[in-house]
Design a binder for these strands. Structure first.
Lengths: 144, 144
DNA sequence: GTCGGTGCAAACGATTTGCAGCGAT
DNA sequence: ATCGCTGCAAATCGTTTGCACCGAC
């Protein structure tokens, strides 16, 4: 984990940004919850446990900073807030399967979209840089 | 168009709902802009031109009603608001290609996901009812 | 006269912003 | 002494809700 933190620190420094204690705490929370998809508010709560005097605004500003520097990604599951996950934009794409009843999220690693991307690129003259695929349905515990 | 309006009217009546003048206006706006992806606010503006005294709340309530009755669909392009398009959930799936610079949206009709859906269904015991695929990139006018 | 549907204004939740203070360089 | 970073509170934006009113049945 410290290795990752170091890399992030370098990445930020190379862009004239600092990894301040608050930012590091936020990063740690994101790393400790790699499997979850935390909202800004949730990150805030978790950070507060360790450093009670961070402000919510700082969390938002830091998440924005991390996003801009491709340190994290944001996903919108349609539940009214953005959610964040560690990993840069260029990292290998995974997709989400979301249970409409319990909200559980499964990640799948398949990436069968290369072909489709090429097709869109050719047919519509559209330079695709990213894609997002979500499946909605019911998990085994919530199946009708 | 009147044919569609009639069908919607029947659909609503079958669920004890009425197609009031306001609701019809909202439906007309949606139909006249089938190719766009209007936000609630945008629908409101367009409806106001014809019927200046509709309220924004009515627009939201009507869109919700249409959603619940599978008359329209909602999509989230990550620009801070839900957007709506005519067409029910069970209708044939199309996907969106979104230009990150000018915001232009192209729709593509391919549906290569059946196979992947089956796989997820089998491997994770997850009953998939819907999926959502978006491509982000740059259209031919905005290409670097 | 009931009751669904409406307009308006107030309330709301997520996010952003203005500003004064702080701390490393 | 500067300037980026911060906390706090206020502002903003999209959306929802409470409420009194209206109009069809």
């Amino acid at each position: 984990m410290n290795k990752v933190i170091n890399e992030v620190s370098k990445k930020l420094k190379s862009q004239e940004y600092k990894l301040t204690p608050q930012r590091e705490q936020i990063l740690r929370v994101l790393l400790e919850n790699k499997d979850k998809h935390l909202s800004a508010e949730e990150v805030y709560m978790l950070v507060k446990k360790k450093s009670p005097d961070v402000g919510l605004a700082t969390v938002y500003r830091t998440l924005e900073l991390f996003l801009d520097n491709d340190i994290i990604r944001s996903v919108n599951f349609g539940d009214g807030c953005k959610r964040y996950e560690f990993g840069d934009q260029e990292g290998h794409h995974h997709h989400h399967v979301i249970c409409l009843k319990c909200g559980k999220i499964i990640e799948i690693d398949e990436d069968l979209l290369e072909e489709l991307e090429k097709k869109v690129n050719k047919e519509h003259n559209f330079k695709i840089t990213n894609h997002e695929l979500k499946f909605f349905g019911y998990c085994k515990d919530c199946a009708d």
